[in-house]
Amino acid sequence: MKVLVPVKRVIDYNVKVRVRPDGTGVDLANVKMSMNPFDEIAVEEAIRLKEKGAAEEIVAVSIGVRQAQETLRTALAMGADRAILIVATDDVHQDIEPLAVAKLLAKVVEAEKPGLVIMGKQAIDNDMNATGQMLAAILGWPQATFAGEVTIEGDHALVTREVDGGLQTIRVRLPAVVTADLRLNEPRYASLPNIMKAKKKPLEEKTPADFGVDVSPRLTVLKTREPEGRKAGIKVKSVDELVEKLKEAGVI
């Protein structure tokens, strides 16, 4: 079975996000960018499936600016076999929407015919939590989102999902789309020799036009602002003082 893993280049999760004062967005020039943390988990899961013999080949895909090459090289250094980059914009501030990403991924799926697509549940920049579900809809495939555990059983996958009430286990027919939650695994670090080897692995470059997909946005961003801040609070000296303050505030 071939596994396709879409990976997104996003602001590193440790970087403090800065909203531009003129309201035109978040500053992304000269900030550290990394692979979306959920996508690292997806890559790791694909590698484990390969190590267990449930998968033969892992193809990583990224859509966005040319710099997403670095993200794909990281996936290759972790253990993906080859990579596809779809250069859809040259502006680091332009986010390609989940619907457009899903349409492009559907075309890649048509060409590559994977038995499983495993991706992140959410990109930590736009916090959409949508692309996997949209891809599954376009392909007419089953979806198993927010996965905390994945087992391949012949032509099905058994997936335990993290949901509001606790955990739900479902069985989906393959091919399917799985989206990874945080507790699915702990992704490995790429070793130096593997980083070197990754430079020689194939990385193919495409454009949306190659697939005949229109990536123009459906949502226009009118404004980006900082959230309302909280006014500074106080330090209390003792539990007694805390109890007193909470009684004054009428919350206990």
Binding site: I11, K16, V17, V19, V26, I124, D125, N126, D127, L219, T220, V221, L222, K223, T224, R225, E226, P227
Partner: peptide, 12 residues
């Protein structure tokens, strides 16, 4: 909200 609530976006 986007970026874990560090920014609020108005979209049309």
């Amino acid at each position: 909200p986007i970026y874990a609530g560090n920014a609020i976006q108005t979209v049309k």
